[in-house]
Design a protein around this nucleic acid. Structure first.
Lengths: 110, 110
DNA sequence: CTGGATCCGATGGGATACTG
DNA sequence: CAGTATCCCATCGGATCCAG
């Protein structure tokens, strides 16, 4: 089978490109979170998008979804070992992004 | 003035998030390019999106647009000094993206 | 608590035609 | 050569309602 492999940079953008994916991922770096935790930590996200983005990240193998068979339902999301390999990438992106925001602030203040 | 500063990772995604922006940027790393060069190098991109993405990248200060007042028109696009600071970020993203694509290829081959 | 289903507006991007 | 203008469709994301 022939893979018309996409540009690797686009790959990263596809993986993190959803509106809330970076923030979801960011919170999971700190620790495992429940669905309701993420809702609380990211108040502006809708249930629909939170669910959808979590499914996307899971499908890419970056996070692990654990269902505890209890009542009421308890579902936890955590970075997979593989997902953790993205952390250094995030840090580099983050550093540049912060600098870029600084730059735009100064420019609008001039 | 208060800046509600966006997540730095989202900043990077906003800057590179257009469908063709990574590829445009990638080609400009190698050397200055004319509009028609980019059209030739990225055959699938429409004139509209190429123009729009180039304007976006210019607005962010990453590339410089130079108009040579000659007939026929000649316009060149080049990375700005500031734009070059993104190169290391791109390389990190690219490395991870390649690995991720590999991983998905293997998984679909199993 | 953790979703799924549905509807709807906003945005992104493609196709085509036209212009200095 | 290097665009601009217009129309159109697909996808994204928000709001709301429903369910195990």
């Amino acid at each position: 089978m022939i893979h018309t492999r996409e540009c690797p940079i686009e790959t990263v953008i596809n993986v993190l490109g959803g509106k809330w994916k970076p923030m979801i991922y960011w919170h999971l770096i700190e620790s495992t979170k429940r669905f309701s935790d993420l809702e609380r930590l990211i108040p502006a996200v809708s249930q629909k998008m939170l669910t959808q983005h979590l499914r996307d990240l899971e499908k890419e193998g970056l996070i692990v979804r654990t269902i505890h068979p209890v009542v009421p339902p308890k579902v936890e999301y955590a970075l997979s070992d593989y997902g953790k390999t993205l952390i250094p990438v995030l840090e580099v992106m983050c550093a540049w992004g912060e600098n870029h925001n600084e730059r735009k602030s100064e420019e609008s203040a001039s």
